[in-house]
């Protein structure tokens, strides 16, 4: 499967889903009832067509160049890191209000930094995470007067 094919399939699926979603949108009671729906339908339709075009281009390229050697789905180190970052970010979002900015951010950054740099750099990992969190917190709450969620129990 080459890039054209992958792009095409992803795009067409997305386009179709969006078009179906667009059709399900509420009709308006003021003005033209189809008002809110026309444009999304148009977009979804065009995207699906573009996706199909891409698939056709992909098939053509395969015929010309032959099927590429298919790499097995390797879970690379980088891939793992990205996954960890995203998982940590989800955790961050969940704990943001509950733990307060400083704690949640320190936790988030420590997870990422330890995953990235390993235990060898534990000192800089912890220092940077905590210093960053406290620094940004002070900047926002004192200098900029933008309130950030506070820790439980303490009103910091």
């Amino acid at each position: 499967m080459n890039k054209h094919l992958k792009a095409g399939i992803g795009t067409s699926v997305f386009g179709l889903t969006y078009t179906l979603g667009a059709w399900g949108l509420p009709r308006s009671t003021v003005g033209n009832p189809m008002g809110p729906v026309i444009y999304p339908l148009f977009l979804g339709g065009i995207l699906t067509i573009l996706g199909l075009l891409s698939i056709i281009m992909g098939i053509r390229e395969q015929k010309e160049k032959g099927v590429e050697k298919q790499e097995g789905f390797k879970v690379t180190q980088t891939g793992k890191l990205i996954f960890i970052s995203c998982a940590a970010a989800v955790l961050y979002a969940l704990t943001f209000q509950g733990l307060g900015y400083v704690l949640a951010t320190s936790l988030f950054m420590m997870i990422v930094m330890f995953a990235l740099n390993g235990r060898k750099h534990w000192r800089s990992n912890i220092t940077v995470s905590v210093a960053f969190s406290i620094g940004v917190y002070l900047l926002f709450s004192n200098l900029l007067s933008i309130p950030l969620p506070t820790m439980p129990f303490l009103d910091i």
Partner: peptide, 16 residues
């Protein structure tokens, strides 16, 4: 290895 995690932190606070 220090800069990019900081960028990550900045991105999220910026969005907030």
């Amino acid at each position: 290895r220090i800069l990019y995690p900081i960028v990550l932190g900045l991105a999220f606070i910026g969005v907030y």
